[in-house]
Design a protein around this nucleic acid. Structure first.
Lengths: 136, 136
DNA sequence: AGTGCTAGTCTCTTTTTGAGACCAATGTTC
DNA sequence: GAACATTGGTCTCAAAAAGAGACTAGCACT
C-alpha cells in the first residue's frame, strides 16, 4: 500500500511492547490521574516543606478557590499522600501534613518540578516559535 | 519559608517569594499545568516508545475523544515536546514524534510513572481505608 | 456503487471548575 | 455590648472545559 511505503520507517522496528501498559485500565493512570490535577502538585510541593493549616495554604496559593482547596486536599488525603489533623482550639484549626507515602511520591515528582524550573525558557521559546508559525 | 501576604503589585507583579517558590506566577506552574493534563502523560508515554500516527494513538488510547487527542497533541507540540509531520500520501497521514526536549522531560517524568506503577497497591489501600472511615 | 481509510473540525451535552455568599462559635475591638 | 474578624469549611450559581457523535474530502478496494 502506498501509505505504508511513503511513511518514514518507525524507530526500532519493533511493534510497541505495551506490556504492562493497558491504556484503558492501568494502575499508572489510576494513580497519575489524581496527582495530575491542576492544584495537586502545588499543594504537595508546599506540604513537602512543612505542615500547613487550611487557611495558610489558601493564602499561600492565592488563586485557588476554597472549594478546590478542600477538594484537592481531600483527594490527596484519600490517596494517602497527606494527613489531616484537627486541633480542638477555640476556632478549631486543621493541619495538613505529608505522609511517608507522599514523601516517597514527591521524591521523583520533585525532579519533574526541577526540570520545569530549569527548562522554562526552552518551553517559552518553543511556544513563541509555534505561535509565530501559526500566525502565518 | 516566609509567606508574604498580598502586597500591592509593583512593577513586576511578582508577589510571593517563598525561597524560589512563587505560587502565583512561577515558571514551574507555567510548565507543569500543561503536562498535568489528563492525557498529556499518557501520550508522552506512548510517544516515548516510538512515533505514532494520529489514528494509531486514537486506537492506543481508546477512551480519548478525537477532540481531546487533537488538542492535547497540539499543546504538547506547542510546548516543544513533540513534532508533527504530515506525509502527502493519498489520505494524508500525520506522524507525531518526541523531540529532544520531550525526551529530556520524559526522563524524570517516567520515574513518577514507575513510582505510580510500583505503589499502586499502597494507594488503593489508602483509598479503601479512607472510604471505610468516611462511611462511619 | 458502496464502503472504508485518513486526520481532523463542528456542534451539542455533560462534567468540572471558579466566584462568592453563608455557617456557627469564639475573640477582639470600639 | 454590638460589630466585626477568624476558624474550616459547605452551598449555589455561572463559566469553562471535556466528552459524544455527526460531518468533511479524496482516493483505494471490492
Amino acid at each position: 500500500m502506498v501509505i505504508k511505503a511513503a511513511r518514514k520507517p518507525a524507530l526500532g522496528g519493533q511493534e510497541c511492547d505495551m506490556s504492562g501498559w493497558d491504556a484503558g485500565n492501568c494502575p499508572v493512570r489510576d494513580v497519575i490521574d489524581r496527582i495530575a490535577g491542576k492544584w495537586s502538585t502545588l499543594l504537595l510541593e508546599a506540604l513537602s516543606h512543612r505542615p500547613y493549616r487550611f487557611g495558610e495554604l489558601r493564602r499561600l496559593v492565592p488563586d485557588i478557590s476554597q472549594r478546590m482547596l478542600t477538594q484537592t486536599l481531600r483527594d490527596l488525603q484519600r490517596d494517602g499522600y497527606i494527613e489531616r489533623e484537627v486541633f480542638p482550639t477555640k476556632p478549631p484549626s486543621v493541619e495538613y501534613r505529608m505522609t511517608d507515602l507522599g514523601r516517597s511520591l514527591f521524591e521523583p515528582l520533585s525532579k519533574v518540578l526541577r526540570w520545569a524550573e530549569k527548562n522554562h525558557s526552552s518551553v517559552k521559546a518553543a511556544r513563541a516559535k509555534y505561535d509565530e508559525s501559526e500566525l502565518a
